[in-house]
């Protein structure tokens, strides 16, 4: 697994504008979340979720990790006696 250097990890993306999230909702969304719900993504106040912008920056950095042929995780099987 190629892990990027630490200084590469938290390179922030440009700030996500509220209008961008609204645009995503209008084009792709399966549910019509209210502006209030979406505002929490841009400017979190509730102390539960990471801001959308932070999450996108971090996911962008995850893209740089080459996982080769590693498949997605499945269940855990116990070996029989």
């Amino acid at each position: 697994m190629k892990v990027p250097k630490r200084q590469e990890i938290y390179k922030p993306l440009k700030a996500t504008k509220f209008e961008i999230i609204q645009g995503i909702r209008e084009i792709f969304a399966s549910h019509d979340f209210s502006d209030e719900d979406l505002l929490e993504l841009v400017d979190p106040k509730l102390g539960v979720i990471t801001s959308f912008n932070d999450l996108m920056s971090q996911l962008e950095n995850l893209r740089k990790i080459d996982l080769g042929q590693t498949p997605p995780a499945l269940g855990i099987e116990e070996i029989s006696d």
Partner: peptide, 18 residues
């Protein structure tokens, strides 16, 4: 949707953007 609390709705909204 009106019956959900606002913090959970925001989390679900985040899920829609991933």
């Amino acid at each position: 949707s009106a019956a959900y609390s606002s913090d959970f709705l925001a989390g679900l909204a985040l899920g829609q953007n991933i």
